[in-house]
């Protein structure tokens, strides 16, 4: 059993920063097992978390001055919420980890404190039935743990209300950009080659730049401006941001000289890309449902495809008619 500190070092901050950019993100983890924070006694509380190092650090850095046990589950370097969704932060792993770490020999009580976002993977009553440990879901955020422990393990309404602040959205954007780069590069290369073949380098650069900006509008701008974009549908929010972006691009890139078919093609194609990536951000939010996303996809994917088809026809018309 390892004893760990509660003050994050420069290397911890750097590692977290790199992981946010998708660097070493899938291998940013700590060994699962039981850890001691401060000088815990057999009466000290047991907190449970995932073995993604950013989750582990988030918990321990909030608990300076506390004496607690930290039971870290093997989630293969995935955070609590995502791991709970796929079941690795789950009943089976928790039960196994309690046994493997011989938790019952370190503590005299039989209580576990779990993050609320771990609940989709853990059946509390099953854990109790199999191990004798009672489960309490404490808080959504690690930052509320000190207050939770100080006020006698009472979860206030605020501690269980999820948020999605500007900053909380902003930190998600880098990794989304990195994950999307590969497909964007493929589509972009085809687009570049087509425009280069017919219109030369300048046309190819304009087409590629416009397309790339449209993707970024969906991936970065739409999440950042989420509450201010109209409607509830993410596809619609992305499309609106995309139309505004296209208008800016049209003015900034000398759209008046394109001729109307190409200009119209831009206004059909670019918002479709923004809309798709805007819709994709539903996977990162804290409030969208699977059924809602399915409904959005049924309605919006045909519109996006139609929009791209019209755009393609306009481009062909501009060149060959």
């Amino acid at each position: 059993m390892a004893r760990i500190g509660t003050v994050l070092q420069a290397a911890d901050h750097l590692g977290a920063c790199l992981a946010r950019w998708g660097i070493n993100r899938m291998h940013y983890l700590v060994p699962p097992g039981l850890y001691a924070l401060g000088n815990p006694t057999p009466e000290s509380p047991v907190l449970v978390t995932a073995n993604y190092k950013m989750s582990f650090d988030a918990v321990r850095s909030e608990l300076g001055g506390h004496d607690v046990w930290l039971l870290v589950l093997e989630t293969y370097g995935i955070n609590v919420w995502c791991a709970a969704g796929k079941g690795t932060f789950g009943t089976e792993e928790l039960v196994n980890r309690i046994r493997l770490s011989r938790l019952d020999q370190f503590v005299s009580h039989r209580r576990l404190i779990l993050p609320i976002l771990g609940a989709p993977g853990v059946a509390a009553h099953e854990v109790t039935r199999q191990t004798g440990f009672a489960v309490r879901y404490a808080t959504l955020r690690a930052a509320d743990l000190p207050e939770y422990l100080a006020n006698g393990a009472v979860t206030t309404a605020r501690m269980r209300e999820i948020t999605f602040s500007f900053y909380e959205r902003l930190v998600l954007i880098p990794v989304e950009v990195m994950l999307a780069l590969k497909p964007i590069a493929w589509v972009g290369a085809v687009l570049f080659a087509l425009f280069y073949a017919v219109g030369g380098l300048s046309a190819a650069l304009t087409a590629f730049g416009g397309y790339f900006g449209a993707c970024l509008t969906g991936i970065a701008v739409t999440p950042a401006l989420l509450p201010w974009l109209p409607g509830r549908s993410f596809a619609l929010k992305g499309a609106v941001a995309g139309v505004i972006y296209t208008a800016c691009f049209y003015l900034g890139a000398g759209g008046a000289s394109w001729g109307w078919p190409l200009a119209a093609a831009a206004f059909f194609a670019f918002p479709a890309f923004s809309s798709f990536y805007g819709l994709n951000f539903t996977g990162c939010t804290t409030y969208t449902s699977r059924s809602g996303v399915k409904k959005e996809m049924r309605l919006s994917l045909p519109v996006m495809a139609g929009s791209l088809a019209v755009s393609l026809l306009l481009v062909v018309a501009a060149w060959f008619v």
């Binding site: 209300e161 999820i162 948020t163 999605f164 989420l226 509450p227 509830r232 549908s233 939010t285 804290t286 409030y287 969208t288 449902s289 059924s291 809602g292 409904k295 959005e296």
Partner: peptide
């Protein structure tokens, strides 16, 4: 949740 609301009548 304050400030955000998703589609109505979709949840299972």
């Amino acid at each position: 949740m304050k400030g955000f609301r998703y589609l109505e009548d979709v949840t299972t």
